[in-house]
Structure formats: C-alpha cells, structure tokens
C-alpha cells in the first residue's frame, strides 16, 4: 500500500517538475525565446542587416508586461482574456510530455502520439478564439484563415504520425502500429534514425513543411499576415495578454521542433551518465537549431506569402501525398 502511494507521489511530483521546470515550464520558455532570437538575428544577417540582439524576444516580453491592457468594448471579455491563457498553458503541458533523446523519457504513460494530436491544435484554437472574440473584422478574417490552414496542415501531420507508427510497429514484428513516442525512440536507437530510412524520407519532408505551416512563416504566413490582415487575431491585443501570445508562439516553436526531432532523429550523442545528459541536451538543442534554420528561418527568408487558397492547396496537393506515400510504403513493407 505504501509502495503504491509513494509510487503515485513520485510520479505526480515528477509530472509537476516536468511541467513547471524541465522539460516544460521554465526550460521550454527560455529555449523558445532563445530560438526566436536566433531566428530574428539570422534572418537579419541573411538580409545583410545587423539585426536585433539575441535576447530581443525577452526584452519584448518584459516591455509588453509593463504596458496597459486594452479590451475593446464590443469584445467578449471572458473569451478575449481566456484565449492567450488557454494557448500558453496547452503548449506548456505539451512541451512537458515530449521526450528528449538521452535526457528525458517523458511522463510515464503519457508520451503518446494520439495525445499530441489533440494537444497540438490548442494554440491554433487559442488564436481562433482570440480572433473570434475580439469583435474586429480583421480578427474574424484571421480566425477563418487560421481554421482553413489548420485543416490543411493537420492532414500531413496525421499521415506522417501514422507512417512512423506503422513503420516502427511493423518492424517490431507485431504487424500493428506503435503510437508511443518512447517506443518509437527506442526503435531508432536500435535501427538508426528514421530520417535515414528511405521509406520514411517523404514523411520527414512532409513534417518539414508542416513546421512553417503551423508556425505561420514564409509561404504560410497567412493567418497573421501583417500587411493583409494586420496580424489578424492578435490585432486587438495589447500588454500582458499579447505577451502571453508571444510566449505561446515561442513554446509552440520548441514543441514542433522537438516533436520532429523525436520522430525522426532522437539519437543521443553519448551514453547517459557522467555528464552525458548535459552533452545530449546540448546535442538536442543543436538539432533543434538546425531544424529551425532549415524549416523556419531560411524558408521565410527565401519565400513570400501565398494566398489562402494557394496555401491550402499546397498542403493538399504536395505535402499530404508525401506523407501518404510513406504511409503506403510502410504498410506494404510491413
């Protein structure tokens, strides 16, 4: 009885630690703001500008915290204030569930792809709630654009999740599929990363295109397009509530990068123990940085914005078939 109780206690303590400090909470906030800073700096250097300092996102958050909060008279006040909180907390919880190769194996029994499929759209939901409740026509436009894009980019995400699950499950000999992230990572420790698996390469490409799609950068800067809908759902926000949205976007960036790393290249650099954890953590951050450069920074430096219908059909025509091809091949080679 006591054993069970202490087991539950340590498990829940572990979960609380994971959500508040590492790998969720403080760690993910710091990493997210750092990645945002690197993104802005590198983009500036690519455009031959000097660019803001690396810690500029932190300054922005501090600045927004000191500003006045304005809520439009016609807005639905409750939903307007709930939206950023909902998005930020949803993302912080998601970040705590993601395992990091060689560092952290996730909260026991929760590192599941199905749960992630439910948690990943939460920031988009938050933005939609924000756009809908702000009573601004631009907010409403942002709302509808966000929703359209979500329908478009969820499809390749689900298909590449399934492709990975079928590939890993099929190789396990059970003939089924595996939806547990730690098990997927264990498979890659044994058989090498899925990134170098020719069958999974199209799915990896699809996920690479999903990242700018969900972050709204480059070609897919459609829901928050500044010159078109003036940042859409964020238009009416000011002060701390806007800061919450910026934090949400930073954490979401970490979440999607970490998810892609966990699915396709989670392998640690050295064995755990004797400070190996720190090396592996740095290695993990390096992988996130490289992925950020490829899928967000260089992508948005090189491309302009698509129209909503073009963005939608891009995912339907090119990205989804890539992921579906992987899924089909994984089924055939089971």
């Amino acid at each position: 009885m006591t054993n069970v109780l202490t087991g539950i206690l340590t498990n829940s303590l572990q979960a609380v630690f994971a959500m508040l400090i590492f790998p969720g909470g403080l760690f993910v906030l710091a990493l997210g703001l750092f990645l945002k800073g690197v993104d802005r700096k590198v983009l500036a250097r690519l455009q031959r500008r000097v660019g803001p300092p690396l810690y500029q996102p932190v300054l922005d958050i501090l600045k927004l915290a000191t500003k006045e909060t304005l809520i439009p008279d016609t807005a639905n006040e409750g939903a307007f204030q709930l939206a950023p909180v909902l998005g930020l907390t949803g993302m912080l919880v998601t970040a705590a569930l993601l395992p990091i190769g060689g560092v952290w194996n996730g909260v026991t029994g929760l590192g599941d792809l199905l749960i992630l499929l439910y948690l990943l759209p939460i920031p988009a939901m938050g933005l939609m709630l924000a756009g809908g409740s702000s009573s601004s026509p631009y907010g409403a436009l942002g709302f509808s654009r966000e929703m359209c894009m979500m329908f478009a980019y969820e499809m390749p995400l689900i298909a590449s999740f399934l492709a990975v699950a079928v590939r890993v499950g099929g190789a396990g000999g059970s003939g089924g599929s595996l939806l547990s992230l730690p098990a997927i990572m264990d498979y890659q420790y044994l058989h090498g990363p899925l990134l170098f698996d020719p069958v999974m390469l199209p799915a990896a490409l699809a996920l690479l295109l999903f990242i700018p799609g969900t972050m709204g950068s480059g070609l897919f800067d459609i829901p928050e397009a500044e010159p078109e809908v003036i940042e859409g759902p964020l238009l009416e926000y000011s002060g701390p509530l806007l800061a919450a949205f910026h934090l949400m976007s930073a954490v979401k960036l970490v979440v999607v990068l970490e998810l892609a790393v966990a699915l396709f290249f989670p392998n640690p650099l050295v064995a755990t123990g004797d400070g190996g954890v720190m090396v592996n953590l740095l290695w993990h951050i390096c992988k996130c940085l490289v992925l950020l450069m490829v899928s967000v920074t260089c992508f948005r430096a090189a491309t302009g914005r698509l129209r909503l219908d073009q963005g939608f059909s891009f995912f339907v025509k090119y990205t989804s078939p890539l992921a579906l091809a992987s899924l089909g091949l994984a089924f055939l080679l089971r």
Binding site: R49, P52, L234, L235, E236, L242
Partner: peptide
C-alpha cells in the same frame, strides 16, 4: 534598407496601434 536597419535598436514596425509604443 540594410544600411539603416531600425530593428537593430529593438524596434519593430507593427500593424496594429494596440501593439505600439
């Protein structure tokens, strides 16, 4: 224009008056 780059001072041109300082 890269030569002037107001962003290096931490500035950002924003589209909404509610974000402005």
């Amino acid at each position: 224009i890269p030569r002037y780059d107001v962003e290096r001072l931490g500035c950002k041109y924003c589209g909404s008056p509610r974000h402005a300082d």
